[in-house]
Design a protein around this nucleic acid. Structure first.
Lengths: 331, 331
DNA sequence: TAGGATTAAGAAAACGGTTTCCAAATTCAC
DNA sequence: GTGAATTTGGAAACCGTTTTCTTAATCCTA
């Protein structure tokens, strides 16, 4: 393995100088920079990220915390996207990304969790798919021991940023689109929401309610708990008399659509997320597509910003509305 | 952060002694072991894995290489399972697991790839979803610089183990089951295979052909290239005159089933893998369920074995046959 | 009981970087 | 041309472990 010392020798400088060049410190002359870079090229030197992480108290590593157990197929696709995005951005920044899963923290106290993370030289965490019931993690974030980036939770402070789409606005947009494109009557809308311990649920419901005010349609809000089954049952019960069904997640939209198909009625259904499975669920469905991989990338960049000492903030990422068709997911 | 020095001081021993206790070296007396462990408990000490990895040339870290881009939804579920299994087993063994993706190695020479891995203190890699076209990776494995565990590729040597189910046998089993449970005639079977650059394809086809000999049914083998679309087209063309359709992957089975539904014929279809999506695809489907998470775990344990100097071997993991129903995947 | 063989514990040198601190060299103002 | 200010580069300590090498202590065996 070629080390920083080899490079130093080759370039005829001290190891500290090489390190400064690598990390773009200001106090190195153009001349030496060139010489060092040349040596780096020639030797195909790549700095050892483990050594770097150990020695520098500043940089450290980033953990991506996800919970793919939660919602089965949908979540495994979504979580994978988050992770891929973060790993990709991490690689570009020469920064180690380690994936961790919520289940690992089950039964731990916050202190234990902190120690576990510290013991891996983790300085910053990205938390995806958190709801208010994960006490250990919310507390962990609130203690601000690490630099935190939370996806889809409204937490912001000196050491904590949050990132995500504007769920209320997106819900309004997709619902408006679904309604206006619907040929039949659209004055009765059934909204099947996600679990109520979730921030995104609150926001999406708020969006739907605001739109109902603005457009003057009748809105029935029910709690589908992010469950496909529950959404199916609700739809079997209430779906027939509605004109449009909007759901707080794609999985529930699929459940609703299955129910409608069984009942032989064909109302438009809209979901939320843009998971691939939607393509398999039937025609006449629309959804809000979130770019989870991009969110993962941005989250990682935000970790870097926070680690460099800047304060937390809120980041809104774009989304798009889409009509889902089987042909588009077919490979 | 509490370090090994704190523990040493507390227990009144040298740091090296603490290290020996942690790593279960033989030459420490029961007495000291007890004293050190007590100190560890009291201080809630967790060894820093980064420092350990840097210092020890033996242990090091394990990379899990996957390619979730390949087959969209199916692969993202499968790859996630591999990763989760490996991370879980890695945590238990106090060993860092880092996920990497095939795409990162695109355009790299083997040497570059090696340097990249070395620079992360990676001593062992688990490769999932590899086919013969990924030249860089196959060469990387063959150079034996790392300890390799390959999933579903018949590579075995001093430093390389492979792991996976017995694809030929599994294919025979599921096909036999599908045929014998089918009430109608079963003397014409259509087999839609995966891409031919893949070992699992070869094995599965071999299994199907052997069974056709044994049971004496007529077998038509076509190349579906792991593509749902292709399988659909093939089925539209040849499906009507068949009695049973067997596919080399679940995704293709879904494509085939969609085609049959469109044609209004109802032959039994069997797939391979056991992905959740199968539940959404229709009735009358069976498949081979692989436990990907378990495979990930076992693969990691095998890395540890290899790193401890033992030679590579072949590991067969169990599988099960299942009838897929929507109710089972519904959450 | 002497003397070698074994066992237990510690001191110190790695591992491959980063960072602090200091000295030398250069620039600048007057 | 002198002294102060500013760049630039290097020496060395450090990050938290592992591991090698010694030494001290204990155990056998003859």
């Amino acid at each position: 393995m070629v080390t920083i010392r080899d490079v130093a020798k080759r370039a005829g400088v001290a190891v500290s100088t090489v390190s400064k060049v690598i990390n773009k410190y200001p106090s190195v002359s153009e001349d030496t920079i060139a010489r060092v870079n040349e040596a780096i090229e020639e030797l195909h030197f790549i700095p050892n990220s483990v050594a770097a992480s150990l020695s520098s108290k500043q940089s450290g590593r980033v953990a991506v915390l996800t919970d793919p157990d939660g919602q089965t197929l949908a979540s495994s696709e979504i979580m994978m996207q988050y992770i891929m995005g973060a790993v990709k951005a991490g690689n570009e920044a020469r920064l180690d990304v380690v994936p961790l899963f919520f289940s690992m923290f089950a039964g731990m106290t916050v202190e234990e969790a902190e120690h576990r993370l510290e013991a891996q030289n983790i300085r910053s965490i990205i938390v995806c798919g958190l709801d208010r019931d994960m006490k250990v993690l919310t507390e962990l974030i609130e203690r601000e021991k690490f630099k935190n980036v939370v996806v889809d939770m409204p937490m912001e402070s000196e050491n904590t940023s949050n990132i995500g789409v504007d769920h209320a606005q997106a819900q309004k947009d997709i619902l408006r689109k679904t309604i206006t494109e619907n040929m039949g009557p659209s004055d009765k809308v059934l909204y099947i929401s996600g679990r109520t311990n979730s921030y995104v649920t609150e926001e999406r419901v708020r969006g739907a309610m605001e739109l109902s005010q603005e457009m003057g349609f009748e809105l029935t809000v029910t709690n589908g708990e992010f469950s496909e089954k529950k959404a199916r049952e609700i739809t079997l019960q209430l779906g027939r008399n509605m004109d449009v069904i909007a759901c707080g997640s794609d999985l529930m939209a699929i459940g609703a659509m299955k129910a409608l198909t069984d009942m032989n009625v064909f109302h438009p259904v809209c979901g939320f997320d843009g998971i691939t499975l939607m393509g398999y669920a039937g025609k006449n469905m629309t959804t809000v597509r979130q770019d989870f991989s991009y969110i993962g990338e941005e989250a990682l960049r935000e970790c870097i910003r926070l680690m460099s000492g800047e304060p937390g903030k809120t980041i809104r990422v774009p989304y798009s509305l889409m009509q889902v068709r089987y042909e588009d997911v077919l490979n």
